[in-house]
Structures are given as structure tokens and as C-alpha cells.
Simulated assay, not measured.
Amino acid sequence: MGKAAIIRDLLRNLNKLMGLIVSKELAEFGLTMPQMMVLRCVMNERKTIGQISCEVQLSYSTVSGIIDRLERDNFVQRSRDHEDRRVVWITKTDKFAQIKKQVPLFQEEYYSQMLLGLTDSQLDNTITTLQMLTIQLEKKVEEKP
């Protein structure tokens, strides 16, 4: 197996493991990964469904359905713009602000805890490697029309 294939498989496995860990933690709070992605978008400011859709790279209708469920569970609320009634803003609720304090994923030290056990040298090597990979992939994205 070539080195590129090994990297591909490692990235897939890493993505899968991170997804499993996060999904298990979110399930404890009755949340899904797509819901978490939407909640992150409105964590600091209100946004429209279109803005959220672009940010999470999901269709408008998918995001609208996610927001329906989040609104039903009182994590977000919809409100019309005062100047343009066609615009609907999505904002977090007090319930979300409360649960945010309990969800490990939102805590500053979350990734520090996940990486506990790695030495500073191992962390530095990981950072350098991920930065190189990111730069390489960004170049590929810029090359595509």
C-alpha cells in the first residue's frame, strides 16, 4: 500500500473515531452531530437559515428541518427581522446557553483532555504535520476552477 493510501486510511479512521466520540457525548444531551453544527453557527450571533446552510454545507431544506427540531426542543428560536419581515433570524435560547456549559465539546479544555498522554514533542510533530497537510490541500483547492 502506498503512502498516500495509508494517509487516506488514517484520515478516514481519525474522522470516524472523532465522529463516534462526539456523537456519543452529544447523545447524552439528546443532540445529533448536524444539530451541533447548526448550534455552533448561532453560538455567538444570530444568523439566517441561508447563512447557516452555507456555513455547514448542507441544503437549505436540511438545515430548516434541523432548526425545526432544535426549536421544538427549545435550543433555538426563530424571529422576524423588524425592518424586513421576509428575513427570519435564528438565535440561541437560554436553554442552549445552559446546556453549553455541560457539553464537553464546547469546553475550552475538550481537546486537551482528548490528547492527554501525548508528549509535547508528539503534539508539536502532529501540529507541524497537520499544518503541512492543510497547506498542501489548500493549494489543491486553489488550483481547481
Rank of each mutant, 00 (worst) to 15 (best):
E45K: 15
K139E: 10
V22N: 02
L58K: 07
T48I: 00
V88A: 03
E108N: 06
Y60F: 12
M114W: 13
R86W: 10
S61K: 14
Q35H: 09
S59F: 02
Q136H: 08
L20M: 10
E71Y: 00
F96E: 07
Q122R: 02
E83A: 05
Q77T: 14
Q51Y: 00
L70K: 11
Q35C: 02
R69H: 10
S53A: 09
M132A: 15
G65K: 12
M37A: 11
Q35S: 08
R80W: 08
L133M: 15
M18K: 13
K144W: 04
K100G: 02
Q35E: 15
T119F: 00
P145G: 12
T134R: 14
L123W: 00
D73Y: 07
P104I: 06
Q57F: 01
Q51N: 04
K16W: 06
L14D: 04
R78N: 01
S59K: 08
L58T: 04
R72A: 15
I21H: 15
T91Q: 08
S53T: 00
Q107K: 15
S23H: 12
D84C: 06
D84T: 06
L133C: 11
Q77R: 13
M33A: 11
Q77A: 11
K101H: 10
Q122M: 06
G2F: 10
Q98G: 06
N74Y: 08
E71V: 04
W89V: 12
V38E: 03
L118N: 07
L10F: 12
D9A: 14
G50Q: 10
L115G: 04
D120R: 12
T93Q: 13
S112K: 11
I49D: 00
V87L: 11
K139P: 00
S79N: 11
K3Y: 03
L123S: 03
N44F: 08
I7S: 05
K47D: 07
K92D: 02
L39H: 01
